[in-house]
Amino acid sequence: MTPRERARKQLESRRDDLVALSHSLHAEPELAFEEHKSAAKIADLMDGSGFDVDRAVCDLPTAFTATYGTGDLVIGITAEYDALPGIGHACGHNVNGASAAAAALALAPVADELGITVKLLGTPAEEGGGGKVYMLERGAFDDVAAAMMVHAAPFDMVGMSSLAISAWNVAYTGREAHAALAPHMGVNAADAMMIAQVAIGAYRQQMPPGTIVSGIVTDGGQAPNVIPGRATAHYECRAESLEALTAHKDRVRACFEAGALATGATLTLDDHGRDFADLRQDATLTDAYRASAEALGRTVVVADASTRGGSTDMGNISHVMPTIHPLVGYDCGDAMMHNPDFTRFGTTPGADKALLDGGLAMAWTAVTLAEDPATRTRLLAEVAARTPVSAR
């Protein structure tokens, strides 16, 4: 029996466990850095399957690693499991996390034969915070030669890029006053936010192609007869590269500063987690994944150079090591990710098949990397020559 056949047989034997995992993650969605149950569900499954599990790694309570094998070629598989506020797993991360576990479990019986170490990395807070970036900075990826994951979507696609992103927690501090008796005694923080939003709206006409700004106001006052002394918001800036993001952020920052200048309020801009880099997918890994997915009967769209998704902290990983982040699809009606309607499709038979196919396609991709002498040599040489991010 070939390594691919053994991996497939292993995955089939764990099908019920993996589908149950996906459904359980979906039923109990948890937000960024609060995924205690979700992380434990995946870590417990790996622990019970003979993996060496380390929990709360990198000073992150909901991060973990699970390793199997002792080979010199370390294959990193990243598991996502955080959800979105109010709409649960409209991100599809229950499928992402279960697919990662599926790939790791499928590879375990062939790890020694292939001379690989399977490393499943539980990465929290992809939807806001950037768990992968923290884990990269703190050494969890230092030994990883190639990294991979799949992301739930309405279709299968390989090779797309993503936008770099930076997020802020915005706060204006003013002074409360009676809105009728003494409005002149107040400093209106909500007006400062309004002026900033108008300035951002005016800036949109001159935004370079590929740049985006979006946000929500999270507090604009408590009573109409009180001048708001505090207003807060959560804003995101996106651009096609980290370099373009820097210039874009400067312009958006100026808009927020305008609100403070016009009203006399005090502005605070705090980073919300780490910046995400644009995604760069490795061509060799992409070709191997596409061939594996198509061998399973899936129809895979190949993205062109202009195709970009949203934003992902997998982008930061891709700037350091060969990485893939393909989409694995299932019928979602006319819903897209981050739409409440997408959530209800996350435990359908189509989603279950997608998580299993995505996991097996990743496992077969790892087999291809390990068995191809040229690719294996390249990956080992690159990881040996790389200065670990944690040591920079």
Rank of each mutant, 00 (worst) to 15 (best):
T365K: 11
D357Y: 01
D357N: 10
D357C: 07
A361W: 00
L355P: 08
A354R: 06
V367S: 02
M362G: 11
A351S: 02
T348D: 01
F345Y: 15
A363G: 11
T348M: 08
D357L: 05
E371M: 09
G346Q: 15
R344A: 13
F345S: 13
A366I: 02
G346R: 11
P373F: 08
R344F: 09
R344W: 11
L356P: 05
R344V: 13
T347I: 15
P349N: 08
A363L: 06
V367R: 04
G350M: 13
G346P: 05
L355H: 11
L360I: 07
L356I: 10
W364I: 13
G350R: 12
A351E: 00
A361N: 02
M362F: 10
A351M: 00
M362S: 13
P373S: 14
D352N: 12
G346E: 11
T365W: 10
A370K: 10
R344C: 09
T347C: 15
T347P: 04
P373N: 08
D352F: 05
V367M: 03
L369F: 07
L360E: 05
T348V: 05
T365V: 12
L356T: 02
T347L: 08
F345L: 08
V367I: 15
A370F: 05
E371F: 04
L360Q: 08
G358M: 05
M362E: 11
W364V: 13
K353M: 10
P349G: 11
L356E: 02
D357R: 04
T348W: 08
F345P: 07
A354W: 06
A361G: 05
T365A: 13
T348L: 07
W364T: 12
L356R: 03
M362T: 12
L355F: 12
G358F: 06
W364D: 12
A361V: 03
L369D: 03
P373Y: 07
W364H: 15
A366D: 00
D352H: 12
L356Q: 02
M362C: 14
M362K: 11
P373M: 06
G359W: 00
G346S: 14
A354F: 06
E371Q: 13
A354G: 05
T347W: 05
V367F: 08
D352V: 06
T368I: 03
A363P: 07
T368W: 02
T348Y: 07
K353C: 07
K353V: 13
L360V: 07
G346D: 05
W364R: 10
A366E: 01
M362Q: 13
T348P: 06
R344L: 13
D357W: 01
T368Y: 09
R344G: 09
P349D: 14
W364F: 14
V367P: 06
A351R: 01
F345T: 14
L356G: 06
G359S: 00
L355W: 08
A361I: 03
F345K: 09
A351Y: 00
A370E: 05
L355Q: 14
P349W: 06
T347N: 13
